[in-house]
Structure formats: C-alpha cells, structure tokens
Simulated assay, not measured.
Amino acid sequence: MRDPSDKTLPDLTYPEVGATRDGSLPSGYGHAARDVVIGRGRATFEKAADGLFRWQMHREAGLAPVSDAPRAVVGAVVTLHAGLGPLRLTIPCQVVYLEETDTRRGFAYGTLPGHPEQGEEAFLVTLEQNGDVRARIRAFSRPATLLARAGGPVTRLVQAFVTDRYVSALRHLGVTGC
C-alpha cells in the first residue's frame, strides 16, 4: 500500500496504490482477475513481456495509447483512447510499480483524474518451471464519473471484454513479437 507521505505519485485517484501486487484486493471496488496460459518457452515469454512494456498489448487490444515514455516505467503516464468521435473515451493512467525478474515481468497502473474509473490494474507475464507462459491480470475499480456509474453492469461487461482482448493480444505478441 502507498505511504501517505510518499508524494512521487500525487495525482492518483485512489489510496490503495500497489494493492494489485499481492494478496487480496481492497473492498469497496469491483474486482477482475485473469490467469491463463498464452504459450510456451523463453522466446514466447520475452516477446510477450516486450510487447506489454512497449504498450503494444494495448494497441493490439484496440486502444490507442499515448505515453510520455516509450516503455512502461514507474511514474510514466499513459493515456488510452477508446472509441471514436463523441463516444471517444480518454483514459489517463500512471505506472505505479514494475516487476522485472528472469521469469516475471509486468507492471501496474493506477487511475488519474479524468479516468472514468478509480482503481488499479496489473499486467504480469510469467515463465513457469514447466515452460508455460502465463498472462495474469488483476484489477480493482469503481466508477468515478457519471457516465461510468450510469453504465452499471454494462461497465463491468466492457471491462471483461477489454481484459479478454488484452489476453488475446499477449498471446499474439508471444508468437509474433510485433
């Protein structure tokens, strides 16, 4: 959890910074979790992790990311754009932590003012001892705008759809590396 005296990530819209890292997710939010095999072997792991860190997973999922960093780093701001015209959503986030080991790579970002939700989402690619490459996504969120609140259950369905797209994108990136 975030130390309240830590001012390095001051604009986040929720207090439980880092809560997607381990353990149970905070109460008072909707929770999402996905843990699936996306391929096998070191090459698949490296390609998927690289695509994740370069925002390619988001592009392949149908979002348009714009970031102040070409690669996810703590403190980087990424604004995701979804939809077209008057239905276009602007979704600003900030990377709050990284995980980079020989067999685990990923990051989490938290919501910034202007995001339709409040909360955090973590993306992790792992290389298991048996050679399986897994995509793990954990998130907690609640509506932050009138539009998100009005969406009710549809908002959760959209989140599940986007999570499915992230998994598909990581599976594809693990094969192609593009």
Score class of each variant (00 low, 15 high):
T101N: 08
G23Q: 06
L12S: 04
P92R: 08
R21W: 04
C93F: 00
D50F: 01
V66S: 14
D22S: 13
W55C: 03
W55Q: 00
R71A: 09
G30P: 00
G23R: 04
D22R: 10
A69Y: 02
T8W: 01
G39S: 08
T20C: 13
A76Q: 05
E16W: 06
C93S: 02
A49G: 01
D11M: 03
V73D: 14
R34C: 10
A82Q: 11
K47I: 04
D35Q: 12
R21N: 08
L25E: 08
R42D: 13
V77Q: 12
R34E: 13
L87D: 06
Y97C: 03
K47L: 13
V95G: 01
R59E: 15
E16A: 11
V96R: 00
L84P: 07
R34L: 15
A33D: 11
S67I: 01
S67R: 04
R21K: 14
P26M: 09
R2E: 04
G41F: 09
V36F: 05
G83C: 10
Y14N: 10
A48V: 13
G18H: 10
G39K: 02
D11E: 14
G85Q: 00
A33G: 13
V37K: 12
G30K: 11
L9W: 05
A43P: 13
A33S: 13
R54C: 05
H81S: 10
P86T: 05
S24W: 02
R59D: 09
P65I: 07
E100W: 01
G39M: 06
T13Y: 08
G41I: 12
R59K: 15
T8L: 05
E60R: 15
Q56M: 14
A49D: 00
R71D: 11
G41Q: 07
E100T: 12
P86H: 03
S24L: 11
I91V: 13
T8P: 01
E60D: 15
L9Y: 03
V66R: 14
H58T: 06
H58D: 06
L84C: 09
G51H: 08
V17L: 03
R88M: 13
